[in-house]
Design a binder for these strands. Structure first.
Lengths: 205, 205
DNA sequence: CGCTTGTGGTTACAGTTGTTCACTGACTCC
DNA sequence: GGAGTCAGTGAACAACTGTAACCACAAGCG
């Protein structure tokens, strides 16, 4: 029952999206804490004061960017972990999926990796919250697998967090690697994941 | 053959160190790419133009900070890995060492974690280079251990990189955790390391 | 000693920043 | 159809930025 929202609201959303896009592009070569409000409005092509109609501050814009960059990622994460096949096949598929996502949304990944430890507290919190949700979701998927028999909740969450952190680091490494190094990066990432999975298999006893 | 350097040079080094200290302190709540030259000189208590006598730009200052923060860390890394005792004892000691280092040099860790993926290319490179050196050193230590029999150089480097990344992430997590959460962070970090070590033990065959 | 060197200070410039205020004019709703 | 709402405008503000030119004066060195 979503009624079409009026011309007015639609145009506002469009401008808001333009802000997000412009900011994301400007953030490829700087951090959020140095992103100026005027810089963004200039890139969008609107007056500086128009910014306030959409965000209180650039920090607020950053939080919105976190939603955009990570909010849509939950299905992919779950799909990655619950894929069919044996452990090695699953890992290969996960690494390939990460590589593809980085290729398609490089600015998103760059933003998250950069601001995860960045200078803006609210954005750091927003990212931490999303990452915690990822870890919870991965944990839920892991719990379904037979390999997790006998595992405590705590240990499962520990493992899930390790996987999630590893995924983001892999993505960030893809980002900085030259095209001809991508394969090498993928191979190392695969072996890291494989080692962790081996550790998982022998964790108990 | 180190002759005492003149009063002149000594005073210059002192001022330079004041710049580094002031910058590090200012960077606790912002990123390097938003750090202004005037901001730093104001904090030090010198004229803006004095900055140029020591650094070309704030990016240059950042590179110097990388040296200060990571340059002195090499002995600790090596010591951590080559410590005596069985695997679990070694891990406990490593985590404790990391916790202590974070407690003693929080600003250093914050800076490295923040700028590792930060908006200043030269600084990112400087950090990446030091981290690669750490990985090489850890690899060399690992190679000495009997558990590494039969391991290829490539796999050893992969494992070393995994350990190094894990150490920095642990340090950064300590940094953001409240005092009463420190123990919990330490316990999770310990279990992560332990799982990796188990993976290592069963990597071959 | 006097000459050179170079750290740091002073003044000034042209641009930029965030934020305010009063405004326009197209959309919305009764 | 007329009144009200509100996204976006334009001008103005004080404060800030990096950088240039020139100066002061203590240290180094023949």
């Amino acid at each position: 029952m979503s009624h079409t929202l009026g011309i007015r609201q639609a145009q506002k959303q469009k401008t808001r999206q333009a802000f997000l896009d412009a900011a994301l592009s400007l953030l490829e070569e700087q951090s959020l804490s140095s992103l100026g409000l005027r810089e963004v409005t200039r890139a969008v092509g609107v007056a500086p004061t128009a910014f306030y109609r959409h965000f209180h501050s650039t920090a607020d814009l950053g939080v919105a960017l976190v939603e955009e960059a990570l909010g849509s990622l939950h299905p992919m994460i779950a799909g990655t972990v619950s894929a069919a096949g044996d452990s090695d096949e699953r890992i290969d598929r996960a690494v390939a999926l990460i590589a593809r996502h980085v290729r398609e949304h490089p600015a998103h990944i760059r933003f998250i990796a950069r601001e995860r430890n960045g200078g803006v507290q609210k954005v750091r919190s927003a990212i931490a919250e999303q990452m915690a949700r990822f870890a919870d979701e991965v944990k839920a998927e892991l719990a379904k697998q037979p390999e997790s028999a006998g595992w405590s909740d705590d240990d499962l969450l520990m493992l899930a967090g390790l996987y999630v952190d590893q995924m983001l680091m892999t993505a960030s490494t893809f980002l900085e690697a030259a095209p001809e190094e991508q394969d090498q990066v993928a191979r190392v990432a695969t072996r890291r994941m494989r080692l962790i999975s081996i550790g998982r298999r022998h964790w108990l006893g």
